[in-house]
Every structure is written in structure tokens, then in C-alpha cells.
Design a binder for these strands. Structure first.
Lengths: 151, 151
DNA sequence: AAAATTTATTATGCGTGCATAATAAATTAT
DNA sequence: ATAATTTATTATGCACGCATAATAAATTTT
């Protein structure tokens, strides 16, 4: 692994995690993304749709299909937001609350298991490298340097 | 970032890298996956299709569509493998060789930039944590524990 | 207040990677 | 040698996340 590029390691590790989560979720007739979404919806109160994208680290438009299928499966209900005629509040159904708990356990278990196998320092450095990558990209310090300088 | 789960960090960091690679590749009318595939095809000799999946860290079946589009775009040619009637040898066209070079530069640049911003130790720990995650998953030490014990 | 801009949401097409199924060739077992 | 199994490849359906475009409501400009 040490001889692989950083992107390779990132990509294949994430793919492995994704596959694992999807396999586990499928035992409960669900998917990884549905599980993540459930975790970011408040258990008891309506969650503004707007808040979901940022919380999940994805574009708002990416949620469209996921929320639609979640509604069709009876996991959530979308109600108009009384404070904003454009907005939507997402409510968990009892069924959704149940599935949310499975998802919570799944994520907890993965994170706890990994934490047990690495040192604090290793994990800290892992987070730091990830942070560096994200910042380099969002500040366009890898490509588009000229563009950045001209600003 | 420190308060986020390990899977969240892995996922969002990879998504950022993927997006960046796709944006860069699109400037040359290409895509990230095409670029990765090009890098794993020998510049001069026929590359057995079989070797591509493992080298790229993905299932062989996942390549089907990618190779098809690469052939349609004139980046590669698929020729029968004289040593194996089932197999295929992938050859780069001159056009493919040219695009391969762009991809090589793209990947090099990303990796060099990140390496400049982190310490050896940080990067080493990053790789180690990734390795731990991959091993935990492939040894089914996170879920399916019962199954594993019974073997 | 009317016009212009911004924001929230949805639909949809595309790329990527998985799983499954099909087919053909090679290998192994009998 | 024949049968059974394995391996290489392709096609295809699905999930996921992005981008773009459309629409409606809110906000800001004028």
C-alpha cells in the first residue's frame, strides 16, 4: 500500500467502506446513502431539507433522488415549511426511526472498531492529511494556480 | 473535521479528489476513470485486460463500460490475446498515449502537492490507518464476526 | 412597488463502481 | 476423452453523487 498513490489509497479505501456499508444496509433492505440520510434527520422534529446536504457533505441536488425513494419506501414524509414557501421539512416515520437506529449502530460499530486498531496519533494524522487535501482542493492550490493568483 | 466520523472524512475527501480529477480531465475531454485506466495500460506493449482490474483496485466487470467508451473514443484498441482465446490485449493508440501523458501529470501533480504539505510521519500514519481499515473489512472483523469464527 | 437576483427544490442525464447473468475458452477432475 | 469447473470478458441494471436546467418563492435593488 505504501507504494500506491495517495488518491489510490483514498479511493480504494473508500470503495471498500462503501461496499461494506451497502452490504450491511442491504440486510435491512436499505442502502448506505439512505442510512446516512436517516442519521442526519432529527429523530423527533422536522429537519429542513436545506440542512441535509451540508450535514452529509454533499450537494443539495444529489439528495433529490435519495429523498424521493426514501419517501416512497415510507421512511420519511416531506411537509411544507411554514416559515419558507420554497422549503420542505423532513419528518421521520416510525419505520424511518427504526431504520435510523440500525444505521446508527452500523456507523458506530465501524468507527469504534477502527479506533480500537489505531493509535490516537495515527488517527489524528489521518484526519490532518485529509484536511490538507480538502483545503488544497478548495483553495485551488493544486490546479488553477494562475487563476488563483490573478484574483 | 476532527469531530466527524472516519467514514465521513474518507468519503468527503475522496469525493473532493474525484471532483477535482474530473474537472481537470474534462478540460481534455476525458474523465477521471479513463485517465486512471490509461495510466495502467503499458505505453508500448499490449496489456492483458485481466491485469487492469487489480492494478486499478476495482472489479474486472467495472471496466467493461469504461474500456468500451475508450475504444469508441479512439484511445485504445482491443486485440485478441494469442495466448488465451478468452483474453484481450489492450493497446494504446497514439491518441491514447497523448492523453495518458496528461493523466500522468495530473496524478503526479496532485500527489506531489499533497506530499509537500504534510510530514513524512503524517503521511505514513495516513497510509497505516487506510491499511487497517482495508484489513478489518477484508477480514470481516467489523461485521459478520460469527461467520468468521465458524470457519 | 416592480424588476432583478438569490435561494430551495426537483427532475434528469452522465460517470463510476458494484452485482448478476450470459457466453466462450481454458483448465481440472473423472 | 468427456464432463465439470474455473476464468476472461461483456452487457446490463442499480445506487450514488455531480452538473445542469427548470420552477417557484424569497430577498435585494432600483
Amino acid at each position: 500500500m505504501k507504494d500506491k498513490t495517495i488518491d489510490y489509497v483514498l479511493r480504494t479505501t473508500w470503495l471498500a467502506v462503501q461496499k461494506m456499508y451497502n452490504e450491511e444496509a442491504s440486510k435491512f433492505e436499505s442502502t448506505m446513502a439512505t442510512g446516512f440520510a436517516l442519521l442526519n434527520i432529527d429523530k423527533d422534529n422536522g429537519t429542513p431539507s436545506t440542512s441535509l446536504g451540508p450535514k452529509m457533505g454533499m450537494e443539495a441536488t444529489s439528495l433529490s433522488r435519495i429523498l424521493k425513494s426514501m419517501e416512497e419506501r415510507g421512511l420519511i414524509e416531506r411537509k411544507p415549511n411554514p416559515d419558507d414557501g420554497r422549503g420542505v421539512l423532513i419528518h421521520l416515520t416510525p419505520f424511518g426511526r427504526e431504520k435510523r437506529e440500525y444505521s446508527r449502530e452500523r456507523v458506530l460499530r465501524f468507527n469504534e472498531t477502527v479506533r480500537k486498531e489505531v493509535s490516537e496519533e495515527q488517527l489524528e494524522h489521518f484526519y490532518e492529511v485529509a484536511e490538507v487535501i480538502n483545503e488544497l482542493i478548495s483553495n485551488k492550490k493544486i490546479y488553477n494556480q494562475k487563476e488563483r493568483i490573478n484574483k
